[in-house]
């Protein structure tokens, strides 16, 4: 197992030349590899995906869900007709008891003529009828308001329902604007895809190239030793550059070729990408996505509006009911008084 300790010992000049040669080599390798890396960065295209839910829509969806979603306004809308009907019935009943009493009064006046000398019910009830008329107008207006709310709800209920879905369902329900997906099969996309595949190949070539460049090894020692023996001096630069040329010449050409073909492909990608972007603008799929997003946004706004309309409407009907109940009491009170008076008058007439 003899190991010659002095095997690696060389003359100082040779050692210095070796050092310089290795730094030259490192320079060459770094330059080549650097340009390869740079080219790869250049070729990275932006991610073209376009199918996540925009943040603003997500916020609107949470807001709608927080306020009770579709169910809460659906229930209120269902209640409106009943509230309207209840108010109508109270008003109709009030006016009916006025009418009945007035009819009776008119009949008795017709029967007893001037002996039926009390104030006609018609005159007495005039202010009440006017008030009743006002109530009728107000109710008619409320019916129109109900209609508006209902229409507004019908227009947006589908989109509001969508807003109430969990995020993943919402995302899948929104048409994707992912160009690669939506423009599947279109000429431009195929060309673009082919170019990107080609670009990938060039990238892969570069990786292989880089590996090969790094793996090049050669030994200058023997050359330097022979030069030193023959001439007594070492022309390191000439020897190193000559050796580097022979070793890396082909690689340099291949790197140049790789960079050149990448430039060409990138230029092509640029143009087809512009075509693609223009196509995307005109593409109804993408527009369709915009449509849906716009509708979702306006559905949120209408939801807020419908909620406040319904709150207002419900309050209106409940307040009106209280007023109508008071009105009904007034009517029944006066009619009761009139009836009592009528009976007394009848009694007197009979006695006379």
């Amino acid at each position: 197992k003899f190991a010659d300790l002095f095997e690696k010992m060389v003359p100082m000049l040779v050692q210095q030349s070796l050092n310089i040669a290795s730094s030259r080599k490192a320079d060459v390798v770094n330059r080549l590899v650097g340009s390869l890396r740079e080219a790869t960065n250049l070729s990275a295209l932006e991610d073209l995906s376009g199918d996540s839910v925009p943040q603003s829509i997500l916020e609107k969806s949470h807001a709608v869900i927080q306020q009770g979603g579709l169910n809460s306004i659906e229930q209120l809308i269902k209640d409106l007709p009943e509230l309207l009907q209840r108010n109508r019935e109270i008003l109709d009943e009030s006016l009916k008891i006025l009418n009945d009493e007035e009819t009776t009064d008119n009949e008795l006046r017709a029967k007893f003529n001037q002996r039926w000398n009390r104030t006609p019910s018609g005159d007495l009830y005039k202010p009440l009828r006017a008030e009743g008329g006002n109530f009728r107008n107000v109710l008619d207006k409320a019916v129109q308001a109900d209609q508006v709310v209902k229409e507004r709800f019908n227009t947006h209920c589908e989109m509001i329902a969508l807003l109430c879905k969990p995020e993943n369902e919402l995302c899948s329900a929104i048409p994707s604007a992912n160009p690669a997906k939506t423009l599947q099969g279109s000429e431009v996309v195929n060309v673009l895809k082919a170019q990107l595949v080609h670009l990938d190949e060039i990238k892969r070539d570069r990786e292989v190239l880089e590996g090969e460049i790094k793996s090049v090894t050669f030994d200058m020692m023997s050359k330097f030793l022979t030069a030193l023996a023959q001439d007594g001096a070492i022309n390191e630069e000439a020897l190193s550059t000559a050796e580097l040329d022979t070793r890396y010449g082909t690689y340099t050409q291949r790197v140049q070729q790789n960079l050149r073909s990448q430039e060409e492909i990138l230029a092509q990608v640029q143009t087809s990408h512009q075509e693609f972007a223009a196509l995307k603008q005109s593409n109804n799929e993408a527009n369709h996505r915009d449509d849906v997003l716009k509708k979702l946004a306006s559905a949120h706004d209408s939801y807020i509006e419908i909620s406040s309309n319904l709150k207002e409407g419900t309050k209106f009907y409940n307040d009106l009911t209280e007023i109508l109940l008071k009105f009904q009491n007034k009517c029944s009170d006066i009619v009761f008084a009139r009836k009592t008076e009528r009976e007394e008058l009848l009694k007197e007439l009979q006695q006379s």
């Binding site: 008030e131 107000v138 508006v148 309309n309 207002e312 209106f316 007023i323």
Partner: peptide, 16 residues
Amino acid sequence: SLYPSLEDLKVDKVMR
């Protein structure tokens, strides 16, 4: 607001 206001009803009654 969408629904008629009940205030004018009350005012109307007070005036009468």
